[in-house]
Design a protein around this nucleic acid. Structure first.
Lengths: 124, 124
DNA sequence: TATAGTGTATTAGTTTACTAGTACACTATA
DNA sequence: TATAGTGTACTAGTAAACTAATACACTATA
């Protein structure tokens, strides 16, 4: 797994797992890979993976059963809220940044549209 | 200055100065505050500020004159390109993230619009 | 010329993220 | 019951970011 060296690895692992959960790649109640397997999957250390999981546990997005494994919460509503939260965080971030670059609301929207159009040709 | 503890301080200082330059708060050819003054302004260490400046020097956005100070480049075109680069980086980032959250192009735009509308009432 | 204000370089020490290895408690199962 | 697979805890060490202090070269100016 490629990491952005500007951001802690544990944090990127957390974001990676959050994406898997909110997009349904990991279903509610589903068992996560073991910490050891996850460490191999994302090419990081067990302790680094564990740190990501510990935060997710405290946020009640996953549940831990000693000796069995870690499981995605069955609280579907909580997962939805997480999804909304992640979307809003992204919107807030890009809005603040582009506003700081002196772009108006309309300019932000039109820049986004032209960016999307420029991507269309790329087939990716 | 408030720092996001997920990102290196020198990097945030660099972004801060980039914003000042592309928005015209710091004009082309204008002298930057001294490294010592900048360190006070942003509440960081001289060496940390210097690290940010060193990268900006290598990117030719500022120029250094020993004994005099650091100056914003007079290359207006280069500043424009930097502005475009920063905008595009933000668009790329938010697009990738929201796509990974299973939002379509249309949904991204409509979410952005409703986010902007929700901000309207806040007068900020 | 003396002094203050510049950028720059160097050394040292602290903190944090990360890695590495080990050990232990619990669970399922052959 | 023995074994393998879990989560979890702990200690130790490394690397990078950051801070701190100092020194030096250059420039402007009183």
């Amino acid at each position: 797994m490629k990491f952005d060296d500007k951001v802690p690895i544990y944090y990127q692992i957390k974001e990676y797992l959050y994406h898997q959960i909110v997009t349904g790649t990991l279903q509610p109640g589903e068992k996560l890979p073991s910490v050891r397997q996850l460490a191999i999957d994302v090419t990081a250390n067990v302790n680094t993976v564990q740190r990501a999981l510990t935060e997710m546990l405290s946020e009640e997005i996953i549940e831990s059963q000693r000796g069995k494994g870690n499981f995605v919460t069955t609280d579907v509503e909580g997962i939805k809220q997480l999804h909304n939260k992640l979307v809003k965080e992204q919107l807030t971030l890009v809005y603040q940044q582009l506003h700081a670059l002196n772009l108006s609301d309309d300019e932000i929207l039109s820049e986004m549209k032209s960016y999307m159009e420029s991507r269309d040709g790329q087939h990716e």
